[in-house]
Computed example of a mutant assay.
Amino acid sequence: MGEREKSDVTQLLIKMKQGSEEAYEEIFPIVYSELKRLAHSKLKKERDNITFTETELVHEVYLKMVDQTLIDANDKDHFMAIAARCMRQILVDHARKKNAEKRGSGQQDVTYIDKLLKAHHEAEELVELDDKIKELAELDQRMADVVTLRFFGQMTVYATANALDVSERTVKRDWAKARGWLYKELNK
């Protein structure tokens, strides 16, 4: 995304904070391709035989963000960080639902994203990862945020640093520590 588009997103975010309904509609086309790229990379990592499209995931994320009373983002990087967190919540919520179905709850699919986690073992892995990120947050919230933004948000070190208002060096250090901790915890 170029500097002009970043500036446009920032201006639209200001308008959104002021209650402009049109700003919600204007921001989506600007960030759509980046959100779609993010969704594609997440879905590709989740499983090979995916029937759910990145377009459907992007729409779910955007609807979740718009459904909130106020997106409190300061700039484009912060907006993408919120989108990454929403994507994580959507994926994990549906993974939990699939695990519940596996145990016999028999709930019906209610959204497009329900197709995302049909393979139960992958749903279990995503739920386990989310649980470990929550444990990490209890130890160090910033490291957990770095994992969410880098893993779920596919954000660069620079964008992550900007979204969290820390230095790139801090992000690199937290990312390395968090990956090591997660590796150890997930391979017990």
Results as ranks from 00 to 15, higher is better:
95 A>L: 06
39 A>E: 01
164 L>K: 02
59 H>S: 06
87 M>A: 12
175 W>A: 02
88 R>N: 05
67 D>N: 12
142 R>G: 00
119 A>W: 02
48 D>V: 05
40 H>S: 15
6 K>T: 09
138 E>M: 13
136 L>E: 05
129 L>Y: 15
153 G>P: 01
183 Y>W: 05
41 S>F: 03
149 L>V: 03
143 M>N: 03
54 E>W: 02
148 T>W: 00
15 K>Y: 04
144 A>W: 06
153 G>V: 09
62 Y>C: 07
59 H>V: 08
86 C>V: 02
96 R>I: 15
11 Q>V: 08
129 L>S: 00
175 W>P: 01
28 F>T: 00
51 T>M: 08
117 L>S: 13
52 F>A: 09
75 D>C: 13
38 L>G: 04
69 T>D: 10
27 I>A: 07
169 R>H: 02
30 I>H: 05
71 I>M: 14
53 T>V: 07
153 G>H: 07
131 D>A: 14
9 V>L: 11
122 E>G: 08
83 A>R: 01
69 T>N: 09
54 E>H: 10
145 D>E: 13
170 T>K: 01
80 M>E: 06
77 D>C: 09
6 K>V: 06
45 K>V: 14
52 F>L: 15
33 S>N: 10
20 S>I: 11
47 R>F: 08
82 I>P: 00
64 K>T: 06
43 L>S: 07
64 K>H: 04
140 D>N: 14
21 E>L: 09
104 G>E: 12
73 A>K: 04
28 F>R: 14
1 M>P: 02
172 K>C: 10
117 L>G: 03
135 E>R: 11
9 V>Q: 02
52 F>I: 07
122 E>Y: 08
187 N>T: 09
177 K>Q: 15
114 D>M: 06
186 L>D: 07
30 I>D: 03
34 E>P: 00
5 E>T: 11
188 K>E: 11
108 Q>H: 14
135 E>G: 02
139 L>R: 13
44 K>M: 12
169 R>C: 03
107 Q>G: 03
17 K>P: 01
22 E>C: 01
149 L>C: 04
138 E>S: 04
7 S>G: 11
181 W>I: 10
51 T>F: 06
44 K>P: 05
49 N>D: 15
9 V>I: 12
106 G>I: 05
62 Y>W: 13
117 L>M: 14
86 C>Y: 09
130 D>E: 09
39 A>W: 00
122 E>T: 07
78 H>C: 05
166 V>C: 04
151 F>T: 05
43 L>A: 07
120 H>K: 08
146 V>Q: 03
103 R>I: 08
37 R>Y: 08
51 T>I: 13
132 K>I: 06
48 D>Q: 11
186 L>I: 12
130 D>L: 11
6 K>M: 08
